[in-house]
Design a protein around this nucleic acid. Structure first.
Lengths: 218, 218
DNA sequence: CGTAATGTTGACAAGGGTCAAGCTTAGTGG
DNA sequence: CCACTAAGCTTGACCCTTGTCAACATTACG
């Protein structure tokens, strides 16, 4: 399951450019950057491709993941409006990136010899710390702790509002947390029964007892 | 278990400086860098401390890890001669670093406004990719696959020799792979029974069937 | 309204954790 | 040099969490 979708619909360049997300500092208006629209489940880049740009989400959401040969998938991160992804080490992508839902992504072409390194470095370091913290969740926490950490993280990334929209489906959450969809679903149900959350719909969650969830995260 | 060791023996500055590890490019001889000796199990830095330097292992080995409040530990990486660690996002350490065995570590003081960003960026990106790949191992592979991946990785980092020295103990391997020491030990035994490895001693492993191990990794 | 995709729930199995005992090795001191 | 000790490692028995398989419910969509 969860093989990367084969189709890659031709992304469209955006015509209008009314932006709420500021251009990355260091990439002045003269620099090459352009907004591209990706339909839901379309590929933004694939493993093995040459890495030519950094990407910033303008709207929608993106998943970045890796696959094992038998199809097992690990999502290393979700990215929503304002967040940057696409960091690669040796000029080639080691991961896949796909739009979760219809998404606008600004591609910043990388100058061959990066004078923008001092702009990119903080972003890369932040990504590194986030990934290492995720490693702790995956490596040492149980299902309830992982889901709680996920919900709290999502809440904080959506401005701290108690009611959050999960753009991704259960499969994505499972592959992000190293769990099966059944375990994710059951954990949601347990949280609902315990009064920690309210499932407005399967994709809309109200965090009722944030403190309880937070204390679960360790 | 595995709480960070409280004692922090005063590290000694090295007198002689016969080096096999080249100084990081960008940190010229004029830059501030200095070799420090850390005894086994001594702390190099701790979570919450101000991050003032990058570190490169000259000899010995280092573990970088994070703790949950109940003592569960996740080692995000091991570092041996030539490897660099200590990347942090916001000026403070989010992790602990300890010498596994007696280790020489060169500390590169970070200039406040980093002109060396373009030197550091590739290292940070490499660390990011490594961590994301480790995430796949932890999140989606079973015990045998994790241990196989660990052994193959260790082999490659020690020059590809079939006989490798594991400087870390089983507890460290477990906390790196998200497993208990018992499971690590049992998996080693299974590999031995299957003829994949030979346990010369508990810390010395000969990889007899590298291909078998490699195909286990996915 | 019908169909497919997505999500939920239950029964069962298995992989890995926990607890406990014993073994091996290294270090220490008589 | 050997005995004692402690730390580290291995192995076994048992159990629990999570995965697997299956059925069913719900939602989205044509």
């Amino acid at each position: 399951m969860s093989a990367p979708l084969a189709h890659r619909p031709a992304p469209q360049k955006s015509q209008k450019d009314a932006r709420s997300i500021p251009v990355l500092p260091g990439f002045a208006a003269t620099q090459q950057h352009q907004l591209v629209l990706y339909p839901a489940n379309s590929e933004i880049y694939g493993q093995g491709e040459k890495a030519v740009a950094l990407y910033q989400v303008e709207f929608g959401a993106v998943r970045v993941f890796r696959l094992l040969s038998d199809g097992r998938r690990q999502i290393s991160g979700f990215y929503v409006a304002g967040e940057v992804f696409g960091f690669e080490a040796d000029g080639y992508h080691h991961f896949f990136a796909e739009a979760i839902c219809s998404a606008g992504v600004r591609a910043y072409r990388l100058p061959p010899s990066a004078e923008v390194a001092h702009e990119i470095l903080p972003l890369a370091l932040q990504a590194l710390v986030r990934t290492q913290e995720h490693l702790l969740v995956i490596g040492r926490q149980n299902a309830a702790e992982r889901v709680a950490a996920f919900l709290v993280d999502m809440m904080e990334r959506q401005g701290g509002l108690r009611q959050i929209e999960l753009v991704m489906q259960r499969t994505d959450i499972g592959d992000y947390l190293g769990l099966t969809i059944e375990t994710v679903s059951r954990t949601f149900s347990r949280f609902r029964e315990a009064g920690y959350i309210r499932l407005v719909s399967s994709r809309t969650v109200e965090l009722v007892k944030v403190d309880a969830l937070r204390s679960l995260c360790g």
